[in-house]
Nucleic acid binder design. Sequence first.
DNA 1: TGTATTTTTCTTGTCGACAAATAAAATACA
DNA 2: TGTATTTTATTTGTCGACAAGAAAAATACA
Lengths: 236, 236
Amino acid sequence: MTDIDTDNSPIPERKRGSGVKMVYDLLRDEILDLVLPPGSPIDEVQLAERLKMSRTPIREALVRLAGEGLIDTLPNRSTMVANIDFLNLNPFFDALVLMYRVTTRLAAQNHRPEDLAVIRGFHEDYAAAVKSRDALTMIATNAAFHAAIAEAGRNPYFTSLFRRLLDEGRRILRLYYQSYEEQFPQRFVDEHAAIIAAIAARDIEAADRLGKAHAEQIVEQVQKLFARNNKLDIAL
Amino acid sequence: MTDIDTDNSPIPERKRGSGVKMVYDLLRDEILDLVLPPGSPIDEVQLAERLKMSRTPIREALVRLAGEGLIDTLPNRSTMVANIDFLNLNPFFDALVLMYRVTTRLAAQNHRPEDLAVIRGFHEDYAAAVKSRDALTMIATNAAFHAAIAEAGRNPYFTSLFRRLLDEGRRILRLYYQSYEEQFPQRFVDEHAAIIAAIAARDIEAADRLGKAHAEQIVEQVQKLFARNNKLDIAL
DNA sequence: TGTATTTTTCTTGTCGACAAATAAAATACA
DNA sequence: TGTATTTTATTTGTCGACAAGAAAAATACA
C-alpha cells in the first residue's frame, strides 16, 4: 500500500521471452530462502506492477512453480507459497536418503572428468561459506554440490526428483539456521571431501555407503534441531 | 490441413477455470497414447481453434506439460512432443525398477484397507483388458494399477516420480504393442496378484522382492521387443 | 545454376481489457 | 446484539490484439 519504489527501476527494458524465466527465478529464490515463508499469499497484480510486466508471463511462471510443488493454487481463489508438513517429514527424509545414495552411487559409476571439476567447485564454495559462517550461502551451495553429483550420475529422472528434495531441504534448513550452528558444517565439509574421493576413484560401494551415511547424518541433525525447536514452540 | 470437424463440437460452453485442465488432460492422453507421436509439432493457434478457446489457457497447459517433460519448447520457436531417447533407455529402466521396488515396499508398510480396494479394482480392469486383448487399455490400466500401489505407499515424492516413469512407459509400450503379444500379459496378471497378496499381508520383504522381479520382467520384455524391432529397422 | 540479401509469412510472447467467481462490506431483519 | 441477505469490491480466468523473432519465400547478384 505504501507507495515506495516510485522511481528505482533498473530494468527499463527486457528481452522478449525472458519474462517468465525472470519471474520464475525470482519467486523460486524468494521461496527457497524463506523471503516468502510458507503460506504467504502471492498476488498476481502486485507482482505485475513490481516487475512492470503484464499478468500473462507471471501466471505462466506460477503454473510452473505449482508443478514443482513450490506453490499451491486454489481455483478461483488465492495462490500461496506451499506449506511444509512438519508433522510428518518421514516421506521427505525417506526420499532424500534414497536419492543421496542413488545419485552418489551413479556418479561414481558414470561421471566424466569434467564433472569432477564442477563438483569440486561447489565443494570449495561450500567450504568458504562454512568458514565465513554464511548460513544462507551454506545452504544453497550444499544443495548445488549434491545437485552437481546427481548430474554426474546422468539419470535425469533421479536428478529432477533430487533437485526437488534439495529445494525443499533448503526451506527446512533455512528455518532452523537463522543463526549459525557450531559443529554441523565442518563435519559435512569433510564428508563431502570423502564422497568426492570415492566418486573420483569410481568406488561405487564406497560412494553408496558414504552417501547414505551423509544423508543419515543430515536427517539426524535436522531431527535434533527439530526436537529442540518443538520444545521451544511448546514453551510459547 | 483437411478441414474435418466442421460442425461436430459438443462443447458449446465450458465452466470457468476448466480450460487449462481440459487442454492438459486432452494433450496428455494424446501424447501417452501416441496419437501425437514423439516429435509432433504442437500448434497453439490450431489447438485454440479446435477447442474453441483463446491461446492463454492453452499456453498454461503447455507450460505444465513441459514441466513434466512431456513436451519440449524451443524459445520463440515451435513446441513439440518430447522425444524418447531409444538409444539409451538405461536411466529410464534404472529409475523404473527402483521405483517399482520402493513403492511396492512402502505400500506393504503403509497401506490402509481402503487402498486395497482401489488396487484390486485396477487389477481386475487390467485382467479384463488382457482377456479382451485390448492393448491400449492394458497399458493404461497397468500404469493405473501401479500408481495406486504407489499412492498406498503414501510418499508423494516417490509417487510423482513413479507416475512420470509410468507415463513414459505407456509411450514406450504403446510403440511396441500395436498388435497384442501372446504370453506377456497373463504372466503379469499373476504377478500382480502375488504383489497384492504381499501388500495385504504387510510382508515388506516379499513385496520388495516381487516388485523388483516384476519390474525386471517388464524391462527384459521391453528390451526383447526392442532388439527384435531394431532388427526390423535395420532390415528396412 | 548457386549463393547472398531482402521481403513476406507465420508463430510466439506480451499486453490491456472484461466478465465470472469469490470475498468483504453494508444493510436488513430478528 | 447477532444473524441473514444484499451490495460492493477484489481477484482470477479468459479473450482478442499486436509486435518481436524466426522461418520461408522471393528477389538480387555472381
